[in-house]
Write a protein that binds this DNA or RNA. Structure first.
Lengths: 212, 212
DNA sequence: TTCTAATCCGAGCATATACTCGGAAAAACT
DNA sequence: AGTTTTTCCGAGTATATGCTCGGATTAGAA
């Protein structure tokens, strides 16, 4: 068992499965990893456990992945794809609308929905996986969210007098992210989600329109 | 090596060191754990490594701690004590002032200072230690921060017309926390901290005073 | 000093985990 | 059918880590 630092290459697959059979095996491994992470945490994610839960042999696992880090990387790739699909779909829906307040609510609710759907897995990824921030998919997701926000603001500026200070974008992104993450991963069950999200959306809109 | 869930008792020390010699040993172990966490991450934190870095034997370590989780718990206890001391000192300073804007800036800057001082250690604690949220000190810190904010708002209400919606407290705490955490743990080095903190403080004050 | 309790020591055992390797089985290709 | 490539297998090896235990050493009490 190696301890310490990882090189980027550790996140890539050894080889791509070409036949349908092997593609199913790889999928089973990734799904098994997701289940183990959600149910037992990162400490429970051993290569042998993944193979057992996936119903394949340990040898097959190492045929495609150099280690468990690569499996996690692949899993995060899938989550990224799902999130991006939701994001673009949501943007198409609100593309015609010009109501900033409505658009903001829809955007935050959609984001919250994806996070909540995978909240047990997300909790482990965020709070336990040491190399999450170095994963290509993680970096890509951050860029995508930032881009969406950026474009949304530019679009809003065409219809409203929006005041954007030097650090507005950064503060809006980090504070909204902090509230959503806390709501999904750490808030007590008694906390009502929808009202809080709507209040957050109102707050962000008020921030932008404060000069009016 | 056990995997899975821990009971609360795992976070307590086996016995308290009574003589000065043993107290020094325990301190050395905790400091060693802090260094290892900051430099190598949670994966590098093995009981043998802690003993080696602390300059004591592995036997001595198990004399006082049931496992590495208890050492981490003790370490977080120390961080909690330092943070609470800072917090109360800061409150005493701003106790006489009635300027909400100034008080908010001082409070956020002080909080940011403590976080920044231990940022490498804090990053590992937050993003890698699986049981951080279950630690008594963590729970206590959250309560303390919430109390400070609550009291600050009540005090502000005596001098200003402060608008506090049903979820204002929660949203302020989580969004501010998210921004500060991101700033300290994840922001690129080019990001200027002080201006961002001041902008955040202004934003929070504007939120409270929006009805004026 | 003598006695008791606290402290310290570290080789060694038990276990868990990562990962290999030689070969069988299945699929695709000619 | 014959050949090649892909896929699958899982016992076994090397290594790392948690943790014990019998005994040496030191500090304080009587």
């Amino acid at each position: 068992m190696r301890a310490g630092k990882w090189q980027p290459a550790d996140f890539a697959m050894k080889k791509a499965p070409s036949q349908a059979r092997s593609r199913a095996s790889v999928d089973a491994m990734v799904q098994a990893a997701a289940r183990i992470l959600a149910e037992q945490g990162y400490a429970g994610l051993t290569t042998n456990a993944v193979a057992r839960v996936a119903g394949v042999s340990i040898g097959s696992l190492y045929e495609y992945f150099p280690g468990k880090e690569a499996i996690v990387a692949r899993l995060v790739d899938d989550l990224l794809a799902e999130t991006l699909a939701m994001l673009h779909g949501q943007l198409d829906l609100t593309d015609n609308r010009n109501d900033l307040s409505v658009a903001m609510r829809h955007f935050l609710r959609a984001l919250h929905g994806v996070m909540r759907k995978h909240r047990r897995l997300l909790r482990v990824l965020v709070f336990q996986v040491p190399y999450l921030h170095q994963l290509p998919a993680t970096v890509q997701l951050q860029r995508a969210l930032q881009d969406v926000l950026q474009r949304g603001l530019e679009k809003a500026q065409q219809h409203y007098r929006v005041s954007i200070g030097p650090h507005t974008l950064y503060l809006m992104a980090t504070s909204t992210g902090g509230s959503l993450l806390h709501l999904v991963l750490m808030a007590p069950p008694s906390m009502p989600h929808e009202p809080v999200i709507d209040a957050l959306a109102d707050r962000m809109v008020a921030w932008l329109l404060e000069g009016e």
